[in-house]
Simulated scan of single mutants.
Amino acid sequence: MEYASLPPGQLTTSQAAMACGVKPDTIRDWVRRGVLKRAGGSPRRPIYRVDDILAAQQAPKPTRAGQRAQQ
């Protein structure tokens, strides 16, 4: 179930993923890694600020040990 309406400038996980051209799992991974912060909602239905989403999309992402470098 999605929210009926959100405050202006805020998106759900699936909307944020579509805006960035990534999968919803990527948005959740950014939150887990500390690249993106939730702006509210509930633990099962978080919402994010558009400005934060765009900043996270451009931010360098932390890597895991042993992860291949992107070329």
Rank of each mutant, 00 (worst) to 15 (best):
V22K: 11
V31T: 07
P8W: 02
P24D: 07
L6K: 03
A39V: 05
Q10S: 10
R45C: 08
R32Q: 07
R45G: 13
M18E: 15
M1G: 15
S5E: 14
R45K: 15
T26Y: 11
L54Y: 08
Q70L: 15
S5C: 08
A59I: 05
R33F: 12
V22L: 10
R33K: 14
R28W: 00
R38D: 03
E2K: 06
V50W: 09
Y48E: 03
T12Y: 07
D51C: 13
Y48H: 09
R49G: 10
M1Y: 11
Q67H: 12
Q67P: 05
P8D: 09
T12G: 09
K37A: 15
Q58Y: 09
Q57R: 14
P43H: 04
R32V: 02
R28I: 01
T63E: 14
V31S: 02
G21I: 06
A16P: 04
A56R: 05
L36G: 04
R64V: 14
A4H: 11
L36H: 03
L36W: 04
P43A: 03
S5N: 10
R33G: 06
V22N: 05
I53G: 01
Q58W: 09
Q71T: 12
V22Y: 06
V31L: 00
A4I: 12
R49H: 13
S42Q: 08
S5F: 10
Q15F: 02
R68E: 12
A65Y: 14
R38P: 03
L54V: 14
V22D: 07
P8T: 07
Y48T: 06
K23Y: 11
Q10R: 08
R38H: 09
R49L: 14
W30S: 05
R68P: 13
R38E: 09
Q70C: 13
T12C: 12
K37E: 15
K61T: 04
R28A: 01
D29W: 08
T63I: 10
G9Y: 02
P60S: 07
P60R: 04
W30M: 05
L36Y: 01
K61F: 02
L36Q: 00
V31E: 06
P62G: 02
T13Y: 03
S14Q: 12
L54D: 11
A19Q: 08
D51H: 13
V50S: 10
W30N: 07
R44G: 09
M1E: 14
G9R: 09
R49Y: 11
V22G: 06
T63G: 12
Q10T: 12
R49Q: 11
S42N: 11
S14T: 12
R33T: 13
A17K: 01
I27L: 00
T63Q: 14
A17C: 06
D52C: 02
G21P: 00
G66R: 01
A16Q: 02
R33S: 10
Q57D: 11
A56D: 04
V50C: 11
K61L: 03
G21A: 01
D51M: 13
G9P: 03
K37I: 13
